[in-house]
Amino acid sequence: MFGGQMPVIKVGRMAGQFAKPRSAEFEEKDGVKLPVYKGDNINGDAFDEKNRNPDPQRLIRAYSQSATTLNLLRAFATGGYAAMQRVTQWNLDFVEHSEQGNRYQELASRVDEALGFMNAAGLTVDHPIMTTTDFWTSHECLHLPYEQSLTRLDSTSGLYYDCSAHVLWVGERTRQLDGAHVEFLRGLSNPIGIKAEVRAFFDVHEQEGSHPGGIHLEMTRQNVTECIGGS
């Protein structure tokens, strides 16, 4: 926000991403064939029959953990942790001693100096805009029974919203135009994301006369297939 002089909407992929899309229904190791791991809200990752069998209780635990995460997020966002005066204390440990970490600290110091000037000039810096933040959540709309159970009708507008997240997206394996996931998302009023190559994403919007609302860049220090070109 400081660097671009533009408002920034903060969206986090959290509080609900417990299902994993899979290309096959079964996995085989050393002659043993078991259902594939489909995410912690369905079955377990360990390769044995007990863990790989679907367990409905996992959906209850996933919901409880998501609700707990959201409560913690609200506490951080409104309880002073997000105050601009703490900008120099915000850091990501794994980039703290990297080039990116150094660039962040430099920018944070500039913000801190600007806040100091505002305070010295008599401008208040304890306004809620400076001490709290709005934070939105997002995940892939994958496990339809879970998403359907958390969908509600807004009685004031007559519109349906999936309350499992603010922003939902349809993934690479579930974006068939005649599929159940697209049909379900078609009836929602949530903002919807679609996984597509970035240039094609902008090309489609240009052809349709619409504008891109934003792009999602996925980053991790772990060697996951989604970030290195695997399936």
Score class of each variant (00 low, 15 high):
Gly3Tyr: 08
Gln5Ser: 12
Pro7Val: 07
Pro7Met: 11
Pro7Cys: 08
Val8Ile: 14
Ile9His: 03
Gly12Val: 15
Gly12Asn: 13
Gly16Lys: 04
Gln17His: 12
Phe18Lys: 02
Lys20Ser: 08
Lys20Glu: 15
Arg22Glu: 07
Glu28Asp: 04
Lys29Leu: 11
Gly31Lys: 07
Lys33Val: 07
Pro35Val: 02
Lys38Gly: 10
Lys38Phe: 05
Asn43Gly: 06
Asn43His: 04
Ala46Met: 05
Phe47Asn: 10
Phe47Asp: 06
Glu49Pro: 01
Pro54Ser: 04
Pro54Lys: 02
Leu59Lys: 09
Ile60Lys: 07
Ala62Tyr: 05
Ala67Phe: 11
Thr68Ala: 15
Thr69Lys: 06
Asn71Gly: 05
Asn71Lys: 14
Leu73Pro: 05
Arg74Tyr: 12
Thr78Glu: 08
Thr78His: 08
Thr78Tyr: 07
Met84Arg: 14
Gln85Gly: 13
Arg86Ile: 05
Arg86Phe: 02
Val87Asp: 10
Trp90Val: 14
Asn91Ser: 11
Leu92Glu: 04
Phe94Glu: 12
Phe94Leu: 06
Phe94Gly: 00
Glu99Asp: 12
Arg103Gln: 15
Tyr104Gly: 08
Leu107Met: 14
Ala108Gln: 03
Val111Asn: 04
Gly116Trp: 08
Gly116Asn: 10
Gly116His: 03
Ala120Gln: 14
Ala120Pro: 04
Thr124His: 06
His127Pro: 00
Pro128Gly: 05
Pro128Glu: 07
Thr131Lys: 03
Thr131Ala: 01
Thr133His: 01
Thr133Trp: 05
Asp134Cys: 03
Trp136Phe: 15
Trp136Ala: 12
Ser138Cys: 15
His143Ala: 07
Leu144Phe: 06
Pro145His: 10
Glu147Trp: 03
Gln148Gly: 09
Arg152Glu: 13
Leu153Trp: 01
Asp154Gly: 04
Asp154Val: 08
Ser155Trp: 01
Ser155Thr: 10
Thr156Asn: 14
Ser157Phe: 03
Gly158Ala: 03
Leu159Ile: 12
Tyr161Cys: 06
Tyr161Arg: 11
Asp162His: 01
Ser164Phe: 06
Ser164Asp: 11
Ala165Ser: 15
Val167Glu: 00
Val167Pro: 00
Val167Cys: 01
Glu172Ile: 00
Arg173Gln: 13
Leu177Phe: 07
Asp178Asn: 15
His181Ala: 12
Glu183Ala: 13
Leu185Ala: 15
Arg186Cys: 09
Leu188Val: 09
Leu188Met: 13
Ser189Met: 02
Ser189Trp: 05
Glu197Asp: 14
Val198Leu: 11
Val198Phe: 09
Val198Gln: 01
Arg199Ile: 13
Phe201Met: 06
Phe202Glu: 11
Asp203Lys: 12
Val204Cys: 10
Val204Trp: 11
Val204Pro: 05
Glu208Met: 13
Ser210Met: 06
Gly214His: 06
Gly214Trp: 04
Glu218Arg: 00
Met219Lys: 00
Thr220Pro: 00
Thr225Val: 07
Thr225Ile: 05
Ile228Phe: 11
Ser231His: 09
